[in-house]
Structure formats: structure tokens, C-alpha cells
């Protein structure tokens, strides 16, 4: 990204990720109803809403894990609706998970190296012979991974088994793995859930670092309002599968529909 783009006001760059009139149903339940949403190249977009509002479903549609019945998804101008998850990931959509979806049987280092998988080229026969070429590729990607380890301050646990780590550190490894993919957009599903205040502060700092140092737009699904108000450039509010509001944090705080959804209708 150019310097000029970063100095303009956030939220004015072209969209990297977008949904158009998207509807997702599970049997009789409508998880997403006619949702249109754009994520711009220079912003942190927070997606908020009460439980069951469709926030995680939205991320799952963007990742290709769910396929919407109606509407389309775009990533940097290319339609991604119906593509398999690994292809969407390889195009540059990375995500972190609610709870931990981490490879518990691997070390922290190997977990992050999995994020490099589709950047690497060694084939099965090549790895069988483990010729210098395969070895050199491993070392080259190790350097990339070490940069991320530095950024997220997990040097001391790099050779620990992830299964043996605490919750906060696992989430950090999850984020590291997503960053290793060198994504062009990062989807984060409730990164702060279940963390204590210090862990939240650390993670918030990392999200800001990622934005400053790597210029990766972030879609943040989050329940913690103080985090959302501090980190997000724009906020989209969901309720019962519909997008009910969108705007800057200040606008959202004053929006009657949002207050309604969270606190119930005033009589």
C-alpha cells in the first residue's frame, strides 16, 4: 500500500471484501437476511450484535465454509461465492477462530509454518528425498515465521506444543498462523472472548500493530464494546440476521435501532 493511501481518511479506499444481498438459511432458520457489506482496504471494520445475530455466519460465508442461498461475495473484484475454503484462503482471506481451532499436536513454530503452506512449493516426492532445495525452502519460510513470532512476542514458546499452552497464548498462535498466510484481509471471530484484561490489552495492541506495520484490513467480530469503540474505524450492527446499522463508532453509539436491539424497545 502506498503512503498516500494510508494518510487519507480511513474507510475511503476501495472495498477488498464485499457481500451483495446475501441470504443464508439453515432449514427454517435464516442466519443472514439480504446482507450487503463492504470491507475497505484501509479499515478495521467491527461487526457487532447480540448472540445469534449472524456475525459468525457472516465470517463463515466469507471464508467459504457456508454457501449462501442468495447473493454473492466478492474479494478484490473476484466472485468467491461457492469457492472451497482453501481456495479463498489462498487468495488472501485469513481468519482466526472463536475458541481455539489450533493444531494441538504441533509446536507453535509448526503451527505458524502451516500458515506458509500455500506459499511453499515442495512436493511430496521432493520432501521424501528432502533434497537441499526442500531444506532451503524450509529455512526461507522459517525467517518469515520468525518475524511474526517477534511481532506477537511469542519467542519463548516457539518450540512448545500448542496443546500445552494456555488459552490466551493459543489465541495468539492462531493470529500468528493467520498472519503467516500474508493475507489481504483478516477476519477475526471474537478474539477477545474469554480473555482477562491484560490479555485483551495485549491483543488490542497487536491488532493495532498489524494495521500499522502490515496494512491488513481487519474484520473484527467482537462483543466487548470498549474494544470495538477503540479499535474500529467503522461498525456494522447485526440483529436476527439483518444488518440494522453501519457507521463510525460515534454514530453507532447514538443510533436508536442499535440501542433498541441491545436494550430492547422503549415503551
Amino acid at each position: 500500500m502506498t503512503l498516500a493511501a494510508t494518510t487519507t481518511a480511513p474507510g475511503t479506499a476501495p472495498p477488498v471484501l464485499g457481500a451483495e444481498h446475501m441470504t443464508l438459511r439453515f432449514g427454517g432458520v435464516t442466519a443472514l437476511h439480504d446482507v450487503s457489506l463492504d470491507v475497505r482496504a484501509d479499515e478495521t471494520l467491527a461487526v457487532i450484535g447480540p448472540n445469534g445475530a449472524g456475525k459468525t455466519s457472516l465470517l463463515n460465508v466469507f471464508s467459504g465454509f457456508y454457501h449462501p442461498q442468495q447473493g454473492r461475495c466478492f474479494f478484490t473484484g473476484t466472485e468467491i461465492t461457492g469457492k472451497p475454503t482453501h481456495e479463498i484462503a489462498q487468495m488472501g482471506v485469513a481468519r482466526t477462530f472463536q475458541g481455539t481451532h489450533i493444531f494441538a499436536g504441533m509446536t507453535v513454530l509448526d503451527n505458524i509454518l502451516v500458515g506458509r503452506h500455500f506459499h511453499m512449493r515442495t512436493t511430496i516426492p521432493q520432501s521424501f528425498l528432502y533434497f537441499p532445495w526442500a531444506h532451503r525452502e524450509e529455512l526461507r519460510h522459517r525467517e518469515v515465521v520468525e518475524d511474526i513470532i517477534d511481532l506477537l512476542e511469542i519467542e519463548s514458546i516457539r518450540s512448545a506444543l500448542v496443546g500445552a499452552l494456555g488459552y490466551g497464548l493459543r489465541k495468539r498462535v492462531d493470529l500468528a498462523r493467520a498472519l503467516a498466510m500474508e493475507p489481504r484481509v483478516l477476519l477475526m471471530d471474537e478474539p477477545m472472548a474469554g480473555m482477562n484484561t491484560e490479555e485483551k490489552e495485549d491483543l488490542a495492541r497487536f491488532i493495532l500493530d498489524i494495521r500499522e506495520a502490515r496494512h491488513i484490513p481487519v474484520v473484527l467480530v467482537e462483543h466487548d464494546m470498549s474494544v470495538v469503540m477503540d479499535l474500529a474505524d467503522r461498525v456494522a450492527v447485526f440483529d436476527f440476521g439483518r444488518k440494522i446499522a453501519e457507521g463510525t463508532p460515534q454514530q453507532i453509539q447514538r443510533n436508536p435501532a442499535v440501542i433498541n436491539a441491545y436494550l430492547g424497545a422503549s415503551a
Partner: peptide, 19 residues
Amino acid sequence: RAFIAVRDDDVAAGMTGIP
């Protein structure tokens, strides 16, 4: 690593770009 990733969590493996 791809094998272990698929073993430990195939959803996460897919979203990390592993077919």
C-alpha cells in the same frame, strides 16, 4: 505439517489454505 493439520483440525486446515 499438512497431514498433521488435517488430523488436528480439518476446518482450520481448510481455512489456512490446505486442500
